Each structure stands twice: as C-alpha cells, then as structure tokens.
Simulated assay, not measured.
Amino acid sequence: MVGVYGNLPYSRIETAHTGTIIYPTGGKYGPRIQDDMQLVLLHSGEMTIEIDGNEHMIPAGSAVVLKPGHEEMFTFSSRGETWHRWISIHMGKLTASELNPYEALPLFQPISEELNRITDIMLSLQLNHPSNSEVLRSLGMSALLLYISEVTRTREQEDMHPSIQLAKNFIHSTFHEELDLSVLASKAGVSPEHLIRLFRNHDRTTPIKYLWRYRVLKALEFLTHTGLTITEISLRCGFKSSFHFARTVKQHTGQTPTEVRQSSWRGNKAE
C-alpha cells in the first residue's frame, strides 16, 4: 500500500508541526483553503467537515486526512467540548500527479496507538525544535505513511471486528466514568476474553490499557490548555485520586502533572 504513494517526495517537505485544541460547544472554524497535507486526530466530541461543499460527519476516535487545494469548513459538537490534535506537513505547491493517489485515501479511519505516539513525540519535541528541523519533518512524513499503511488493516478490522470500534466509541464518550472490562465487553457485544483478544491482535494493547491511555491523553489536554486544578482534572478524567492521577501521568510521560503544565507554559512563552 505504501509504495503506491511513493511519488510524494520527502525532500519536498518544508515544515511539519503539530498542535492540540479544545473547541467550545458549537464552535466553528473556517472557511479556509487547505494548504498542507494534514492529519486531524479527533479524540472527543463531534466534528463536521464541509469539503468543497460536501459535508462529512466525523465520529470521535477518528484520524482524518486532509489534502491541499480543498475548501474546508469545520463545525464542532453542539452538545459539549470537542478535542482534537493535528499534524500538518507543508510541501509548497504539489502537482496533480503527486496529489491524485492521495485523493483515493479514505477521509477518516480509527486513530491507532502508533499515530497517537507520533503525535505525542512531535508535541514534545517541537518545544525545542523548529518546524523545519529534520526530526519534525521526518516524524510528520512517518505519520502520513503510517496512516496510509493502516488503511488496509483498518478496513479488515471494521469488516471483521466492529466490537473494537464499539468499545472505543464507548470509552471516548464515557472515559470519566467508572469503567471495567465487563462493562466494555457488554457494550461491544462480546465476552471479556474475546474483547481482550481483539485488542491484542489488532491494536497490540488491551481494552483497559487503551482506556487509561485515553484518560491520560485527555488529562494532558486539560493540563496544557485549561486552568483547572490537578484535582479537578483527575476527577474529570476518571482517576481514583490526585495521587493516582500523578502516578499514572508520570508512568506515561516521565513527568509529573505539574511539570507537564510548566513545560507547556514555557513553550507558549517561547512562541
């Protein structure tokens, strides 16, 4: 699958950067003309994208690929906040022959753990590396190639195992509640043992590890983009206590919640 798209040369990448934002209820963005190859990771809420006059409803838990030259308008959930992250790869003006193969890619597919990790790494590294650095350009291209390589696997997953997506959608909407394996399996319509096998086979993780990973991602968003206290964030994201929150964030990021927040503030001031 990747080889089909090899005509988009790495040497043409000028910059790559990533970002994260929470839109308020009923938020809108655009219209705009897309300049970059861009991946948008919709973690929670809802998003409708109007592309060249055609509306597309994007469910939470989806990664979206956007291509240059299209007019876009974004409308976010009317029922609550919407959180997404993105990776943009700027290559200047691309020819029709370079872009045509990418038009055949599906507009969106489920976010993989690997794509989440690349986004995490880019968010961390861009505090100290410019957007035209080789490390960020390489990671940006890797994220795009990863999206492409997962297209076939994602289609197979959706055809064979809709229970995975049911479980993930339920996690994305109720991550702040007390959840366990039996509840997730019930919502997915399979036994707990079967759900574990599905996650291990297709995502190389377990349903509970996926849940805690998602809670950490959401908590990091609150830490870096809101003034909520650590106690408030821990409660909003389903942690048992502030101590449990701090320990879990440290395990996943190597930093305490306070250090994460301080790093974000330093990065914002530097910009």
Rank of each mutant, 00 (worst) to 15 (best):
N201P: 07
G227F: 03
E232K: 14
L184G: 00
V249R: 04
A188Y: 00
T226P: 00
L184C: 04
C237S: 08
A185T: 00
R247V: 07
A246V: 02
H194V: 12
D180G: 11
L198Y: 06
H194P: 11
T231K: 12
R215G: 01
E177K: 14
L220E: 15
T206I: 07
S191Q: 06
P207R: 07
H225I: 13
H202N: 14
I230R: 05
H202Y: 08
T205E: 07
E259I: 08
T248Y: 08
R197S: 14
L184V: 01
T231C: 04
P257C: 07
F243Q: 03
T205F: 06
H194F: 13
Q251S: 07
G227P: 01
P207V: 10
G189Q: 08
V249L: 09
H244M: 02
S264N: 07
D180N: 15
L223P: 11
V183A: 04
L181P: 00
K250G: 00
F239N: 01
Q255D: 08
D180A: 12
K187Y: 02
T256V: 00
K218E: 14
R204H: 10
E259H: 06
S263M: 11
L184D: 02
L223F: 08
L198V: 03
T256Q: 04
L235P: 07
S182M: 06
R261L: 01
F243R: 06
L217K: 04
K240F: 08
L184T: 02
K218F: 04
E178P: 07
A188R: 01
V190W: 00
D203R: 07
F199S: 03
A246G: 01
I208Y: 06
E221P: 00
A188G: 03
K187M: 02
K240M: 13
R197W: 15
A188M: 01
E221M: 14
L198A: 02
T205K: 06
E178T: 11
H202M: 07
G254P: 01
L217P: 06
T248L: 09
R204D: 04
F243D: 02
R215Y: 09
F239V: 05
E259M: 05
N201W: 02
P257R: 05
W212L: 12
K250W: 01
H225L: 15
P257V: 00
T224E: 12
S241K: 02
G254S: 03
I230A: 10
Q251E: 08
L181I: 05
N201G: 12
H176A: 11
V260T: 14
L217W: 02
E221Q: 10
A185S: 09
Y214E: 06
Y214C: 02
T231W: 09
F199N: 04
F199A: 03
D180L: 10
I233M: 15
A246H: 01
S234Q: 03
S241A: 11
P207H: 05
H202A: 08
I233W: 12
G189E: 06
R213W: 11
L223G: 13
L228C: 04
L228D: 04
T205R: 08
W212P: 13
G238S: 12
A219P: 12
E193V: 05
K218D: 12
E178I: 10
A219V: 14
L211S: 03
G189C: 12
Q251I: 09
T248E: 11
Q255R: 11
L198Q: 03
V183Q: 04
K218V: 15
P207I: 10
S186H: 09
I230M: 14
